[in-house]
């Protein structure tokens, strides 16, 4: 249930995207391209300083986009960066990454040595992951999701994928509602923890029932598509309009990318 509630709140909430902040005012196509450049910079860089600078840039963009910083940090750090931090911890020790010793200590009779390449590698790994996740989350919360999916046309994604993406997005909302209601009904009737074998059967029954219901919905959806003019080839509306500020933003992003990668 908790996962479903989190999913509904995080994926389907356009609350921040509707605010009048800086990133919300940028054309989604330009925003997606610029953020992709920043994520690529984070991927290519070998410098922690560059990663940290990108993270600072991201946090600055959060502040000028009227997004609550606490909400953003919570949303980005849980779960991937924290998981990556745990993964990186063993790698800072000499047993995984040998090299120049920085700190050594004894614990439970064992000698632990933190090495310079281990610490640098671990820090770069965690900051790189954090920067990438932060930019993706910022893109997702400052852009209306339906628009974000339409932006994929810019990257020449075939029509069929874009159409399926748009329909899938709506179906997910419907499915989450169905699953949430089913779980609520089960919980209100069972009222206690069930044995894991029973729980497995219940989860599988839910999935099978979900597939059954949705499959039978297919024909109704197709008829609805026909009544709206679908003729076998999907048509994607492109009503994005670029303004001078979008071009300025894109130019700034390209310059920042080049500076970060020491190209200029």
């Amino acid at each position: 249930m908790g996962t479903l509630v989190f999913l509904k709140e995080s994926v389907f909430s356009d609350e921040y995207a509707s605010r009048k902040g800086f990133m919300q005012s940028i054309d989604p196509r330009f925003k997606a391209v610029s953020f992709f450049l920043f994520i690529l910079t984070a991927l290519f860089t070998k410098s922690i300083a560059t990663s940290l600078w990108l993270y600072l840039l991201c946090l600055m963009l959060v502040c000028v986009s009227k997004i609550d910083l606490g909400f953003f940090l919570k949303r980005t750090w849980i779960f991937i960066p924290i998981f990556s931090l745990f993964i990186a911890i063993p790698a800072i020790f000499s047993i995984v990454t040998p090299g120049e010793a920085l700190v050594s200590f004894k614990l439970a009779g064992l000698n632990f040595i933190i090495t310079r390449p281990g610490l640098a590698g671990g820090a770069l790994f965690v900051t790189r992951v954090t920067v990438s996740v932060s930019f993706v989350v910022l893109l997702s919360i400052t852009t209306k999701h339906f628009e974000l999916l339409r932006v994929l046309r810019v990257f020449k994604v075939p029509h069929m994928f874009v159409m399926v993406l748009g329909m899938c997005y709506r179906y997910i909302y419907l499915f989450v509602e169905v699953v949430e209601n089913t779980y609520l009904a089960v919980r209100s009737r069972v009222g206690r923890r069930v044995h894991y074998k029973k729980g497995q059967r219940m989860a599988a029954w839910n999935m099978a029932s979900l597939w059954h219901r949705s499959y039978r919905l297919n024909e109704a959806v197709y008829n609805a598509m026909l009544s709206r003019g679908y003729s076998g080839e999907p048509a994607i509306f492109n009503d994005f309009k670029a303004r001078p500020r979008d071009w300025v933003w894109l130019a700034c992003s390209v310059v920042l990318t080049f500076i970060s990668l020491n190209i200029i």
């Binding site: 159409m163 329909m167 297919n218």
Partner: peptide, 13 residues
């Protein structure tokens, strides 16, 4: 065709 979207949403959920 809508089945693809149903399949995608199903594998997501």
């Amino acid at each position: 065709v809508p089945l693809l979207a149903i399949g995608a949403a199903f594998s997501f959920v």
